[in-house]
């Protein structure tokens, strides 16, 4: 029994738990990308930097809250500051729409034009972030580090492998579930949500039936900004905040959105988890698992790692290529928003 439980715990510790957390972060990010895609019809490359911006506002608010002595220990103060981060990001997105994107919407510009515009926006936001907070690493998680420590787990279960759950991972999954549930309730049950879906489905028809396009677009930006701020903060809380990382995060997020089927919220969530788990499964060193199952020394000195951890980001690209080759419309094709 222990022979089977130990490798399972090992996998849970290094793949399942981090995968759930990372997958939730990617899913929230991909959800934002997919919303913009469905309603405004373009790939928003600046989404990574918008996430970073949300995290930055949250961090600055955290510092401010701590300076006036507010804290919700053992939870990180960042959770208290998150609403401020969301508000700041919503402000940013509405401002960007008013100053930049609205012009192209009225022109009915092609999606590639939008794409280039969003890259310009990405430049500017990235520059502002680095200008305000600097490019360095910041750890702003001041709550309890662990929900379950590896040593405690070993004592309770009597196994030789430990299972650790970081509190940031638990918070991530919990928050993601709440946010996703709220989004789906909004899209499917409320009048505004339905009008958004109608607008995404057929713009002209929606206009004919009296839906106010400016309102739909504003609400889309508000939701996207909220999602981005939450995703950015959770990622920063889990792995520490570094502005440059968010630029690279765009690739797995887009891969997640495409794998699931762009414009489809459920697809974005599934895609996020597909990408996260493939990254972890393909870069995990199976040496210890094999040792438990088949005894030491059967496979020699190798780590039994499919891909070196250096190539973590390459995994999302490979999955993207496979999906583009086999089913370019994604897993949940044919249905949007």
């Amino acid at each position: 029994m222990e022979m089977l439980l130990n490798p399972l715990v090992l996998l849970a510790n290094f793949v399942l738990v981090p995968g759930l957390a990372y997958g939730s972060q990617l899913a929230l990010g991909a959800l934002g990308v997919t919303m913009v895609y469905a309603v405004l019809n373009f790939s928003n490359f600046s989404h990574g930097e918008v996430m970073s911006f949300g995290a930055m506002i949250t961090i600055l608010s955290t510092y401010w809250l701590k300076s006036i002595g507010l804290s919700i220990s053992p939870l990180p103060t960042a959770l208290l500051a998150l609403p401020l981060g969301i508000l700041g990001t919503i402000g940013l997105c509405l401002l960007l729409d008013r100053l930049v994107f609205r012009f192209y919407r009225h022109q009915r510009a092609s999606s590639v034009t939008y794409l280039i515009v969003s890259i310009g926006v990405m430049f500017v936001i990235g520059g502002v972030i680095r200008f305000v907070i600097g490019p360095n690493d910041r750890n702003f998680n001041d709550g309890d580090r662990f929900l379950l420590k590896a040593r405690e787990f070993k004592e309770i279960s009597g196994l030789s492998e430990g299972l650790a759950i970081k509190s940031s991972q638990a918070i991530t999954v919990f928050t993601a579930v709440i946010v996703v549930a709220a989004i789906f309730w909004f899209l499917n049950r409320t009048r505004t949500g339905k009008s958004m879906r109608a607008y995404a489905d057929n713009q002209d028809l929606a206009l004919l039936s009296g839906i106010n396009p400016d309102r739909v677009v504003s609400i889309t930006w508000i939701i996207t900004a909220g999602l981005a701020a939450v995703a950015g903060t959770l990622y920063g809380l889990d792995k520490s905040y570094k502005p440059l990382v968010y630029l690279h995060l765009v690739l797995p997020i887009f891969a997640a959105a495409i794998v699931g089927g762009v414009g489809n919220p459920l697809g974005a969530i599934v895609g996020g988890f597909v990408i996260a788990f493939s990254e972890l499964l393909l870069t995990f060193a199976y040496k210890k698992v094999a040792a438990y199952l088949f005894g030491e020394g059967l496979f020699g000195d190798g780590l039994l790692q499919i891909l070196s951890t250096d190539y973590k980001f390459a995994v999302s690209f490979m999955i993207l290529v496979v999906v583009l080759l086999i089913k370019p419309t994604g897993i949940f094709s044919g249905k949007s928003l």
Binding site: S110, A314, L325, P328
Partner: peptide, 26 residues
């Protein structure tokens, strides 16, 4: 892989391949 599909897919695929080339070189 990416041509003949939606125009943004090429952007994302090229972004990906450039990152991978860099990882290989590094």
């Amino acid at each position: 892989v990416a041509l003949g599909l939606r125009s943004d897919y090429l952007a994302i695929a090229t972004l990906g391949i450039s990152e991978i080339i860099l990882y290989v070189l590094k």
